[in-house]
Amino acid sequence: MDVRRLKVNELREELQRRGLDTRGLKAELAERLQAALEAEEP
Results as ranks from 00 to 15, higher is better:
Ala35Thr: 12
Glu28Thr: 09
Leu25Gly: 14
Arg32Lys: 07
Ala36Cys: 10
Ala36Glu: 08
Leu37Lys: 06
Ala30Lys: 11
Glu10Cys: 02
Leu33Tyr: 14
Arg32Cys: 01
Pro42Gly: 12
Gly24Val: 00
Ala27Arg: 12
Glu10Trp: 01
Ala39Asp: 14
Arg23Pro: 04
Arg32Gly: 02
Leu25Arg: 14
Leu11His: 00
Leu15Ile: 02
Arg32Asn: 05
Glu28Lys: 04
Leu29Ser: 03
Gln34Lys: 14
Glu28Tyr: 01
Ala39Thr: 11
Leu29Tyr: 01
Val8Trp: 07
Val8Met: 15
Gly24His: 01
Glu38Gly: 09
Arg4Ile: 10
Arg18Gln: 03
Glu38Tyr: 09
Leu20Met: 15
Val8Glu: 15
Arg32Tyr: 00
Arg5Asp: 06
Gly19Ala: 07
Leu37Gly: 06
Asp21Leu: 04
Leu37Glu: 08
Gln34Gly: 11
Arg4Asp: 14
Asp2Pro: 00
Glu28Trp: 00
Val8Asn: 07
Lys26Met: 13
Glu10Asn: 03
Arg12Gln: 15
Val8Tyr: 15
Asp21His: 01
Leu29His: 05
Leu15Trp: 00
Thr22Leu: 06
Glu38His: 04
Arg32Pro: 02
Leu33Arg: 02
Arg12Glu: 12
Arg17Lys: 15
Leu37Ser: 05
Gln16Trp: 07
Lys26Arg: 13
Arg23His: 08
Gly24Met: 01
Leu37Ile: 06
Gln16Tyr: 11
Leu29Phe: 00
Leu11Gln: 01
Arg23Ser: 12
Arg32Val: 01
Gln34His: 07
Arg4Glu: 15
Thr22Cys: 07
Gly24Cys: 00
Ala27Phe: 04
Arg18Asp: 02
Arg23Asn: 14
Leu33Glu: 04
Asp21Gly: 05
Glu31Pro: 14
Leu11Gly: 02
Arg23Asp: 14
Gly19Phe: 02
Ala35Cys: 13
Lys26Thr: 10
Arg32Asp: 02
Glu38Met: 14
Ala35Pro: 04
Asp2Phe: 05
Leu20Gln: 09
Arg32Ser: 03
Gly24Leu: 00
Leu25Asp: 15
Leu37Thr: 06
Lys26Asp: 14
Glu28Cys: 07
Arg5Tyr: 13
Val8Ile: 10
Arg32Leu: 00
Thr22Val: 13
Arg23Gln: 13
Ala30Asp: 15
Thr22Lys: 06
Gly19His: 04
Arg23Thr: 14
Leu6Cys: 00
Arg12Ala: 10
Glu14Ser: 07
Lys26Trp: 12
Gly19Gln: 09
Arg18Trp: 01
Lys26Glu: 15
Glu28Arg: 04
Leu20Asn: 03
Glu40Tyr: 00
Glu13Ser: 06
Ala27Gln: 11
Arg5Met: 12
Arg18Ile: 05
Ala36Ile: 00
Ala35Ile: 06
Glu31Lys: 06
Asp2Ser: 08
Leu25Tyr: 08
Ala39Gly: 09
Pro42Ser: 08
Val8Gln: 14
Arg32His: 00
Lys7Leu: 07
Gln34Arg: 11
Val8His: 06
Asn9Glu: 15
Glu13Val: 07
Glu40Asp: 14
Lys7Ile: 06
Glu38Asp: 11
Gln16Asn: 15
Gln34Asp: 11
Leu20Ser: 04
Gln34Trp: 06
Gly24Asp: 02
Ala30Phe: 05
Glu31Ile: 10
Asp21Val: 06
Ala39Tyr: 07
Glu40Met: 10
Leu29Arg: 03
Leu6Ala: 03
Leu25Ile: 15
Glu13Phe: 14
Leu25His: 09
Arg12Tyr: 11
Leu6Trp: 05
Glu31His: 06
Glu13Gly: 10
Glu38Phe: 03
Glu10His: 05
Gln34Leu: 07
Lys7Cys: 07
Leu15Val: 02
Gln34Val: 09
Leu29Ala: 05
Leu37Asn: 01
Met1Phe: 08
Pro42Glu: 12
Lys7Glu: 13
Arg12Lys: 10
Ala35Asp: 12
Leu15Arg: 01
Asn9Ile: 06
Lys7Asn: 15
Arg5Lys: 09
Asn9Gly: 11
Lys26Phe: 04
Lys26Cys: 07
Lys26Asn: 09
Arg32Thr: 03
Leu6His: 02
Arg17Gly: 11
Glu31Trp: 04
Leu6Phe: 08
Ala35His: 13
Val3Arg: 05
Ala30Met: 14
Glu14Thr: 03
Leu20Lys: 12
Glu13Ala: 12
Ala39Leu: 11
Glu38Arg: 08
Ala27Ile: 03
Val8Arg: 04
Val3Ile: 14
Glu31Cys: 13
Leu33Lys: 02
Ala39Glu: 13
Leu6Gly: 01
Asn9Pro: 12
Arg5Phe: 10
Leu29Glu: 04
Leu33Ser: 03
Asn9Ala: 10
Gly19Leu: 03
Leu15Gly: 01
Arg32Trp: 00
Pro42Trp: 04
Asp21Ile: 04
Leu6Thr: 01
Val3Lys: 08
Glu14His: 04
Val3Ser: 12
Gly19Lys: 04
Asp2Ala: 05
Glu41Gln: 11
Met1Lys: 03
Val8Gly: 06
Arg4Phe: 15
Arg18Glu: 03
Lys26Tyr: 11
Gly19Asp: 02
Gln16Phe: 05
Glu40Val: 09
Gly24Arg: 00
Asn9Tyr: 13
Ala39Gln: 13
Gln16Lys: 11
Arg18Cys: 02
Arg23Leu: 08
Glu41Thr: 10
Thr22Ala: 13
Arg17Cys: 10
Glu31Asp: 06
Val3Glu: 11
Arg12Trp: 04
Thr22Glu: 12
Asn9Arg: 10
Leu11Arg: 02
Ala39Ser: 11
Ala27Pro: 11
Met1Thr: 03
Leu11Thr: 04
Ala39Lys: 14
Arg17Glu: 08
Glu41Leu: 10
Glu40Pro: 14
Arg18Ala: 02
Arg18Thr: 01
Arg4Val: 09
Arg32Ile: 00
Pro42Arg: 08
Ala39Val: 08
Glu14Asn: 07
Arg18Val: 02
Arg5Ile: 11
Leu20His: 06
Val3Met: 13
Glu41Met: 00
Arg12Asp: 02
Leu15Gln: 01
Gln34Ile: 07
Leu33Phe: 08
Thr22Trp: 09
Leu37Met: 03
Leu15Pro: 04
Gly24Ala: 00
Val8Pro: 12
Met1Gly: 00
Leu29Ile: 08
Gln16Met: 12
Glu31Gly: 12
Gly24Glu: 03
Leu29Cys: 08
Leu29Asp: 05
Leu33Val: 04
Arg17Val: 10
Glu31Leu: 11
Arg12Ile: 08
Arg4Trp: 14
Arg32Phe: 00
Leu11Lys: 03
Asp21Cys: 05
Arg5Thr: 13
Leu37Ala: 05
Glu14Ile: 05
Arg18Pro: 01
Arg17Ser: 12
Asp2Val: 05
Gly24Phe: 00
Lys26Val: 12
Leu11Ser: 01
Glu14Met: 06
Arg4Leu: 14
Glu13Trp: 06
Ala27Tyr: 14
Asp2Gln: 11
Met1Ala: 00
Arg17Met: 14
Leu6Pro: 02
Lys26Gly: 10
Met1Val: 03
Glu13Met: 13
Arg12Phe: 04
Ala36Val: 11
Ala30Gln: 09
Glu14Val: 02
Ala27Met: 15
Thr22Gly: 11
Arg32Gln: 03
Arg23Ile: 06
Lys7Tyr: 03
Asp2Gly: 04
Gly19Pro: 01
Gln34Thr: 09
Arg4Cys: 08
Met1Arg: 00
Ala27His: 15
Arg17Trp: 05
Arg18Tyr: 15
Glu14Lys: 04
Thr22Pro: 08
Gln16Asp: 13
Leu15Thr: 00
Ala36Thr: 08
Arg23Ala: 15
Asp2Trp: 03
Leu20Pro: 01
Leu33Ile: 01
Leu20Ala: 06
Asp2Tyr: 00
Asp21Ser: 08
Glu38Lys: 15
Arg5Cys: 04
Leu11Pro: 01
Ala36Asn: 05
Leu15Ser: 03
Glu28Pro: 03
Pro42Ala: 10
Arg12Gly: 03
Ala30Val: 09
Leu33Asn: 00
Leu6Ile: 05
Asp2Cys: 03
Asp21Tyr: 01
Gln16Gly: 13
Asp21Pro: 15
Val3Asp: 08
Glu13Leu: 06
Gln34Glu: 14
Met1Ser: 00
Glu31Thr: 09
Leu33His: 03
Glu13His: 14
Leu11Met: 15
Gln16Ile: 15
Leu11Asn: 03
Leu37His: 07
Glu38Cys: 11
Leu11Ile: 08
Glu31Phe: 04
Ala36Leu: 04
Leu37Asp: 01
Glu10Pro: 01
Leu25Ala: 15
Leu29Lys: 06
Val8Leu: 10
Asp21Met: 03
Met1Asp: 00
Glu14Arg: 02
Glu13Cys: 00
Lys7Gly: 10
Arg5Gln: 15
Glu10Leu: 02
Arg12Ser: 08
Ala35Phe: 09
Ala39His: 13
Ala35Gln: 13
